[in-house]
């Protein structure tokens, strides 16, 4: 009798407590995992987001960098963490590419999504004195000279590499690829020094060289024109149906309670919709978004399909 009463009391207490527990989220610091090197573009984006969200959440973020495998280690760590909302992390497009490439067993469907807050469109740049005025002219020349036009892209598996492969596939051309470590900066520098014909890079990365009159963009592969350089057409406008951007999202382990996700979403949304923040992001050529968890999940599903198809068709490994 006593035992049963105790059990009943325990259950009641627990029921009484759990909404209280959920309501008091977050009650301690939240760990935020970033799968890239400290100081890199994704790290900066993540840290800025967390720093500003702290005041809306009332608890600090403990940021941890796990730079291994372009995010692989961080994704695995989040997948294996307790779904209590105290371990979340950052993703870039690699969440959609690592599984098809066979590097990790988890993909975007194995996580809860919080928000998509940032996207950087990619693009292709040529030297200011180059004879090609549009993407069409460039591709025509490349078709006439297979494997002679040198294009710089980042290491295999990176987004610029995929963007270039998509361009090759849609345009029916084959480039001579120069692989650059350390992001697009090296490639754009080489382009400015006239060592190569073209280079992949985001508007942000090429902007200073553009204002210096050394290089110019042939087009960006985003859905809409980039506000920073509104006179540059997109690839889609020029007949190449490719829109691949580096989209950054926040994820949580599968099974994280909906209330926790919503709390996090609210806080991040407030950060992102702050006019100062969005203005400074757009000045960097980044697009700011505040996609809800559902919209984020939908977006990532589409992104997964796009990348999977690309990897299959080009035989990338």
């Amino acid at each position: 009798m006593k035992k049963r009463a105790l059990l009943l009391a325990g259950i009641l207490l627990f029921c009484g407590l759990s909404p209280a527990m959920a309501a008091s989220y977050p009650s301690r610091s939240i760990q935020f995992l970033i799968g890239w090197d400290i100081g890199g573009g994704s790290d900066q984006a993540g840290r800025t987001l967390c720093a500003k969200a702290e005041k809306y959440l009332g608890q600090p973020f403990a940021i941890q960098n796990l730079p291994a495998g372009s995010g692989a280690k961080a994704y695995m760590a989040i997948a294996g963490a307790k779904p209590d909302g105290y371990t979340i992390g950052l993703t870039t497009s690699t969440i959609s590419t690592l599984k098809p490439l066979g590097r990790i067993p988890v993909g975007s469907e194995d996580f809860e999504h919080v928000i998509l807050f940032n996207s950087d469109p990619g693009g292709i740049w040529v030297h200011t004195d180059a004879p090609w005025k549009s993407l069409g002219e460039f591709l025509a020349y490349a078709k006439a000279n297979p494997e002679r036009v040198s294009v710089a892209a980042s290491t295999p598996g990176s987004i610029t590499r995929f963007q270039m492969m998509a361009l090759e596939q849609e345009g029916g051309v084959r480039f001579r690829v120069l692989s650059q470590q350390g992001g697009a900066a090296n490639g754009l520098t080489n382009l400015a020094g006239r060592h190569i014909d073209a280079a992949m890079g985001t508007p942000l990365e090429g902007y200073a060289l553009y204002t210096a009159g050394k290089i110019r963009p042939l087009g960006f592969c985003s859905e809409e024109r980039v506000p920073m350089m509104a006179d540059v057409p997109t690839w889609k406008e020029q007949g190449i149906d490719v829109a691949l951007s580096t989209a950054r999202t926040v994820i949580a382990p599968k099974g994280t309670p909906k209330e926790v996700i919503d709390t996090l979403y609210e806080a991040f949304r407030k950060v992102v919709t702050d006019p100062e923040y969005s203005k400074s992001m757009e000045a960097k050529g980044s697009n700011v978004h505040a996609l809800t968890p559902e919209e984020t999940r939908q977006f990532l599903r589409e992104q997964d399909a796009r990348f999977a198809a690309l990897i299959r068709n080009t035989g990338a490994k």
């Binding site: 902007y207 200073a208 400074s280 960097k284």
Partner: peptide
């Protein structure tokens, strides 16, 4: 860039 200072 965050502070709207564009190098170049």
């Amino acid at each position: 860039l965050m502070h709207n200072i564009t190098p170049g």
